[in-house]
Design a protein around this nucleic acid. Structure first.
Length: 314
DNA sequence: TGCCAGGGCGCCG
DNA sequence: CGGCGCCATGGC
């Protein structure tokens, strides 16, 4: 059941009976760098930020989901997929658990219950995870904000003052804008050694025929190719790794969070630790099945939560 | 001051 | 192809 009304000129979408989704976990598990909790929100949980080129705010009271600055048309076109509400996570979790008897995995699934893999814009995802390398989340967020403010388009914040729009907000820069900025223009924002990687990614993206907004642009488009089941996830990763500065980890994060490939399995130091501790030598991501990437996110969130605490059980 | 932060590259054996 | 130093920056 849905409904829309207007608040201060901004459409507000309301969806009732949304079960399972937990916005706070979803935006706090390291997959997205542009959302922050709304201070003084009237809702139990509210996070505002930029996605798909818009300022938007998601809120929850119990089983009711609110989306500020969205119409039903926007929901059908963007936010339903973005929030993973087109997927059956009970079935996904059951699928994951059916493939392993690991107690740690069961605990991680339990602990991460409510996390949804966001379907973010491909270009933004590739670029953001290039920025993430050898970096920490607060600084990743700052760099992405700085790039957006300098090279992104300003967004309309009217009516969104109480929902993340109290100051000017900018869209993530297009590859055209970052290409035009050049390595020096990107380096100026203190991106460090990543500047040439970001520039190369923009150049590569334009040469490869990706769209500015990074969304599907027809059968021959870059995003369509990399999302297509005609390519395996390993093959898609191989293509993304043509970008100077994109290795296996950044490629896997991009495919998982930006291209809808839920079997993509990013391996970082945390996950390496998880594998060593709970699964052992013979571990292979494919053993976790078509939703291995979802399992990875649960394991990452779980292990980071435990905070490196030495709990040597399986 | 040194170490680390959701890595990847270039080089070396 | 496995290991290792390096790459910019900022927070602790």
């Amino acid at each position: 059941m849905t409904g829309t009304d207007m608040r201060a000129g901004v459409p507000l979408l309301r969806l009732e009976g949304v079960r399972g989704l937990q916005l706070d976990k979803t935006f706090d598990c390291g997959q997205c760098f542009r959302f922050e909790p709304v201070a003084g929100s009237r809702h139990e949980v509210e996070l505002a930020g930029v996605a798909h080129g818009r300022l938007v705010s998601f809120a929850q009271d119990g089983d009711t989901l609110y989306i500020y600055n969205a119409t039903e048309r926007d929901y059908d076109a963007i936010w339903r997929q973005y929030l993973g509400l087109d997927r059956d996570y009970e079935a996904i979790n059951a699928n994951i658990l059916s493939r392993s008897s690991s107690r740690a995995l069961a605990a991680a699934v339990q602990h991460g219950s409510g996390i949804r893999i966001l379907r973010q814009q491909p270009w933004e995802t590739v670029c953001s995870f290039i920025i993430s390398q050898n970096n920490n989340i607060p600084r990743i967020k700052r760099l992405i904000s700085a790039l957006s403010e300098r090279y992104g388009e300003p967004l309309d914040t009217r009516g969104m003052e109480q929902h993340g729009g109290e100051r000017p907000i900018f869209a993530f820069p297009t590859p055209e804008a970052l290409y035009a900025a050049g390595v020096d223009g990107i380096f100026e924002l203190r991106t460090g050694f990543r500047a040439k990687y970001i520039y190369d990614a923009a150049r590569w993206w334009l040469e490869a025929g990706g769209t500015s907004d990074g969304m599907p642009d027809g059968a021959l488009g870059l995003v369509a190719r990399l999302s297509s089941p005609e390519l395996t996830t390993a093959e898609a990763a191989e293509i993304l790794e043509q970008i100077h500065g994109v290795g296996p980890k950044v490629a896997a994060c991009s495919l998982l969070f930006g291209f809808g490939r839920l079997d993509a399995f990013p391996v970082d130091v945390w996950i390496r630790r998880v594998i060593a501790r709970y699964f052992g030598e013979g571990f292979s991501p494919s053993g976790l099945g078509p939703y291995a990437g979802v399992a990875q996110q649960y394991l990452f969130y779980y292990e980071r939560y435990l905070g490196g605490e030495s709990s040597g059980e399986r």
